[in-house]
């Protein structure tokens, strides 16, 4: 009896820990785990900018498309399962960047739920899944995990140390070593083909372009210096461009890309006494970004 009592006490103490480590099995469970809504209580300006960003709708694609839908449809891609019920996390290689929290905090049941939502084109449910504050400031904040360890559970990582953070769960802010470096973004805005999957996947190659075609030509700026400039004293978490804001994006493109046009009209003497009416249009297009355009 005494042993049974001890066992019950131990079991009761262990249960919360087990519950904490439980993997999300539905869209709602994963969304709740990484919900950053409470961040806006103190970081209202930053949150408002982030809410307009593509990070806040990382599964909704440009202009609202649920781009992963073919992965859930039988026969549409090499990754597609025979039915949504058979989906696993491996069905969705795009999670690597578009939903990295799924790989650490969800299991295959989540992939089934997500597949069904895609087939139903349930944008209301799918759009709950986002690259939230927690994803960048915790999950993806440390890349030197062998030497520096995994992100600590109660710590957010920023550009500076803050002794105390007024949050029920994330009680500390530590300085993240890569937060102001291009590689922070490069974790997802990639290098080239992702060959770790059983079929290659090639999405964004922006960081590859930055490394091999900007740094190599003498460029020195980090992604954050252009894409996260201060707005009213805060790093801009819109991380423009926002492709759903065509006017704002046009402004950025016009600041970045310029075109010179020269024209000439003359009679070209192709052969003796055989003039041809000719117009020549010479164009020169230049850009001042730290990467190829277009890329992502």
């Amino acid at each position: 009896m005494k042993f049974l009592k001890s066992f019950l006490v131990v079991l009761l103490v262990l249960l919360p820990a087990v519950s904490f480590g439980k993997k999300a099995q539905t869209i709602e469970e994963l969304a709740k785990m990484y919900d950053s809504t409470r961040c806006k209580e103190c970081h209202e300006e930053i949150y408002a900018r982030w809410e307009k960003s593509h990070h806040a709708r990382s599964l909704m694609g440009v202009q609202g498309g649920m781009f992963m839908t073919p992965l859930a449809m039988k026969g549409k891609t090499p990754f597609s399962p025979d039915s949504p019920d058979k989906a696993t996390l491996d069905t969705f290689p795009c999670f690597k960047c578009h939903l990295p929290q799924a790989l650490v905090s969800a299991d295959d049941a989540f992939a089934v739920d997500y597949s069904k939502a895609l087939i139903a084109q349930d944008s209301k449910r799918v759009s709950q899944l986002r690259i939230t504050c927690i994803v960048c400031h915790n999950t993806k904040a440390i890349i030197h995990q062998l030497s520096d360890g995994e992100p600590e559970k109660n710590v957010l990582y920023g550009t500076k140390e803050v002794a105390s953070h007024d949050d029920e769960f994330f009680t500390k802010i530590k300085k993240g070593k890569i937060m102001d470096h291009a590689i922070m973004c490069g974790q997802c805005h990639g290098l080239g083909p992702n060959l770790e999957f059983k079929n290659p996947v090639q999405c964004a190659t922006l960081y590859g372009s930055y490394e091999h075609n900007y740094i190599s030509k003498g460029g020195t700026q980090q992604c954050q210096e252009c894409h996260m400039q201060d707005v009213d004293g805060f790093a801009d978490h819109l991380i423009a461009p926002n492709w759903d804001d065509l006017a704002g994006t046009k402004e950025i493109l016009q600041d970045t890309i310029s075109m010179d046009v020269q024209t000439l009209g003359y009679d070209w003497l192709l052969k003796s006494k055989d003039w041809k009416p000719m117009v020549v249009v010479n164009t020169k297009i230049t850009q001042n970004a730290g990467h190829r355009i277009p890329d992502g």
Partner: peptide, 27 residues
């Protein structure tokens, strides 16, 4: 992304480079 494997050509606008074209129009 789920089917692309390798770039075979890259005509994008590159940093520190100018794309120059000359169009000849025979009227």
């Amino acid at each position: 992304a789920q089917v692309k494997t390798q770039y075979i050509r890259d005509t994008a606008l590159q940093p520190y480079e100018t794309k120059a074209e000359s169009f000849e129009i025979m009227l």
